[in-house]
Amino acid sequence: MGRPRGNAYSGIPRWVVAVAAVGALLVLLPLAAMVARVNWPQFIPLVTSESSLTALGLSLRTATASTALCVLFGVPLALVLARGDFPGQRLLRAFVLLPLVLPPVVGGLALLYAFGRQGLLGRSLEIAGLQIAFSTTAVVLAQTFVALPFLVVSLEGALRSAGSRYEAVAATLGARPTTVLRRVTLPLVLPGLASGAVLSFARCLGEFGATLTFAGSLQGVTRTLPLEIYLQREADADAAVALSLLLVVVAVVVVGLSYRGPAPAGTGSRPARSAGGQGTA
């Protein structure tokens, strides 16, 4: 534990720190145990094997595409949920957040019944010449499905704490709603949007269950890094451990470099005032 930085009063009871330490251990210990299991002399050949690199590349590509889709659909969803006022809003929120609590396999089954060959939309899509089953598109769909709530939750929180007062002022200054969104709302919640996108990307990287159920597993097409780990585990535990570590490192780098955490309440969206700054109207 580090020396406390700064002189500000933190007010955290010692026992809270103790429990927090146990909580951190719960996460770190298994990771440390895994690191201890890595076959280091073989590590580089294992993670640079053709199948590993193919899986890593596929994971990065699909996670990027899925994150883009999450932003495309998540931003409007978060706006509607944060700013809208309509019947069924709470229900909509509950459904959008559902993938957070659904077992991934259930998500995979649901996707199967919607977009599979025998599914609700799948048949029409197949007639239109679109085949989703066993394609990389299926992987992206599965990842988007599970990761979308992360973006929506982050962004909706940012939108709510930013409030709508800047937007109201912008409107009275003559800005059309689209202009308000582009020049005021989105710049104000950019940190929240970035955090949400990073979390979504991380979730996409780790997606396994829905992909396995919905997309299948074929090298270079649908076998992402988690599926490769799952398969390697059957045959070569060393490879599975090495790949797991690779996935952990990629996730830590992505999240650690770009995720800043939620903004402290009341900052970030309001101008600092040097004098006489006081309450809201």
């Binding site: 199967l112 599979g116 060959r117 025998q118 089953a133 066993f134 396995l212 159920t213 997309a215 299948g216 597993s217 074929l218 090298q219 649908t222 076998r223 599926l227 799952y230 398969l231 059957e234």
Partner: peptide, 20 residues
């Protein structure tokens, strides 16, 4: 193959669901 699954159950599931 369009997919190489990790278990027989997953293969069977893909056929039962009509995906394969």
């Amino acid at each position: 193959p369009v997919s190489e699954e990790s278990s027989v159950t997953d293969v069977l599931g893909k056929v039962v669901s009509g995906e394969a």
